[in-house]
Design a protein around this nucleic acid. Structure first.
Lengths: 237, 237
DNA sequence: TCATTATTGTCTCAATTTGTAACAATAATA
DNA sequence: TATTATTGTTACAAATTGAGACAATAATGA
C-alpha cells in the first residue's frame, strides 16, 4: 500500500499501455480485488523522483519491460474526477477501512501512453489489483474516475502523432512485413489505406531496411521482412 | 498571498501568454519585487476548482480578457525544478520570512499557452510582482525554475499545431491583411514563406472572408482585409 | 496631368506528390 | 503444370506545390 510520506500528495499518473495484435489496438487494464472495478494502471510520484521517471518506473513494474516508448500527453484535473466513494470501496476491499486515508483526497492525474509489442509482455498485477489484462480498444469495460476520457484522448493523440514515425516501430516486433506495418497504421487511423501508395511512401521515406523473405507456407508470393533503420526510444521528457 | 488551505498543495500552473506584434512573437513575463527575478505568470489550483478553470482564471486576472484561446500542452515535474532558495528570496522580498512556508515545497507545474491579440491587453501584476511586460521571444531574460524550457516547448507545440488553423485567428485583430497573416505564420515557423503559394493556400482553404480594401496611405495597390469565417475559442479541455 | 514606385492579386507552367490501376513475379497447392 | 492468392514494381492521370511573370492599383511628385 503506497505510503503518504514517500509520495507527493494530490498527484498521480495513469498510463494507457497500448499494444497491437493482428488487426486491433489493445490496452492494459487492471481489475481491483472483489470490486468489479476497472482502471488504468497508475501510481504516484516519489518526493524525490522526477515525474516522468515515476511513470516509467510504474510502467516497468507493470510490464517488466525496461526500454519502452512512453509519452506524456495530457493532465486531467477536473473536480468531477474526484470520487472518494469509489476509492473507499477499493481500499475496503483490500482491508483498509480508513475514512481519512490520503488516497481519498483529490488527485490531479498526469496521463501517459506507452507503445509496446504486446507479445513480449507478462502483465503484473499490483498490490491492490488481482488482474492486469489486455482489452481490445473497442471492447473496453466501464472505467473508474475519468479513465475512459483518458483512453479516448490517448488514441486521439496517437493519431495526431502517427506521422512522426515513432509509433509503428514500438508496436511491432523487430522484423515485420509491409502488410503488418499497414495494419498498424490502419488500426490507429481507423480506416483503410491504399496498398501500393502506402508501400511507396514507406519505402520512399528511407526509414525501413529490407531483409530476407518470409516464407509463411501460404500459396502466394512471399513478402519481404523489414525493420526500422533506427530504434528511437525513451521519448519521455 | 496565496493561502495553503484554499489550494491543492504541490500543484501549480504556468502560462506562456503569446502575442504578436508586426513581425515577432512576444511573451508576457513577470518580474518579482526587488529581486531581479523573472518568471512566467502562474498560480495555483483551488481545492474545488477544475485544473483548466484555474489556468483560465489566472489568465483573466493577468490580462483582463475573458474569451481567450488557451491550451494545456505539458506538465513539468523534474526534481531539479525545485529551488526553494529562489522561492525564499521572492517571499522575503515580499515581507514573508518563513522557512516553512508551503510555497517552498516541491511543485509539479502544468503548463499552458495562450494566444492573444496583444494590443488589447493591459497586463496586471499580481501581489508578488511589480511588473508584467511583453518581451520578444528572442530577447527573453533568464527565467527562474525551468521556465525557459517551458517557453521552448510551448513554441515547439505551437509550431506543430499551426496547421490546425486555430492559431492565427487568435493572434490577429478581427480584420487583417494577407500580409499580416503571412507574418504570423512566418513568426511561428521561423522561416519565410512564398507569397503567392501562401495566398493561394489560404484562399483555397475557405476559412477567410474578404472585406473592403484597406487604404493605408502607401503608394501602391491597397490590400483587401480579411477575417476568419468562424472564431473558435476556449480550446481548453 | 502623368510617369514613377511599391505592393497586391491573379495567372501560368513546370516539378513534385498522390490516387488508382495494371501487371508481372512467385510460393504453395491440386 | 495449371491454379490461387498474394506481393513488388511500374505506369499514368489527377492533384498539389514551387516559383515566377504580369497586370492592376494607390499614393507621390515632377
Amino acid at each position: 500500500m503506497p505510503d503518504r510520506s514517500t509520495f507527493l500528495n494530490h498527484i498521480a499518473y495513469d498510463s494507457v499501455i497500448i499494444g497491437f495484435s493482428g488487426d486491433k489496438l489493445k490496452i492494459l487494464l487492471m481489475e481491483y480485488h472483489n470490486t468489479g472495478l476497472f482502471a488504468l494502471p497508475g501510481g504516484f510520484v516519489g518526493v524525490n523522483e522526477d515525474l516522468n521517471d515515476a511513470a516509467r518506473r510504474g510502467l516497468e513494474e507493470r510490464t517488466g519491460l525496461t526500454h519502452i516508448y512512453l509519452e506524456q500527453f495530457y493532465t486531467f484535473g477536473n473536480v468531477s474526477r474526484h470520487q472518494p466513494e469509489t476509492m473507499y470501496t477499493i481500499l475496503k476491499a483490500n482491508g483498509v477501512d480508513d475514512r481519512e486515508h490520503w488516497l481519498l483526497g483529490r488527485f490531479i492525474s498526469v496521463a501517459y501512453y506507452a507503445l509496446i509489442n504486446y507479445k513480449n509482455v507478462v502483465p503484473q498485477p499490483d498490490a491492490l489489483s488481482d488482474s492486469c489484462t489486455w482489452y481490445s480498444i473497442d471492447e473496453l469495460p466501464e472505467l473508474i474516475f475519468e479513465h475512459s476520457a483518458i483512453v479516448n484522448k490517448a488514441i486521439e493523440t496517437l493519431r495526431a502523432n502517427l506521422d512522426r514515425k515513432l509509433v509503428g516501430m514500438n508496436l511491432l516486433p523487430e522484423k515485420f512485413t509491409m502488410k503488418d506495418l499497414q495494419q498498424v497504421y490502419e488500426a490507429i487511423l481507423g480506416k483503410k489505406l491504399h496498398r501500393t501508395a502506402f508501400q511507396r511512401e514507406m519505402l520512399g521515406s528511407g526509414m525501413l531496411i529490407r531483409h530476407d523473405k518470409q516464407y509463411n507456407g501460404k500459396a502466394h508470393k512471399a513478402p519481404f521482412l523489414y525493420s526500422f533503420r533506427e530504434r528511437t526510444l525513451n521519448q519521455t521528457g
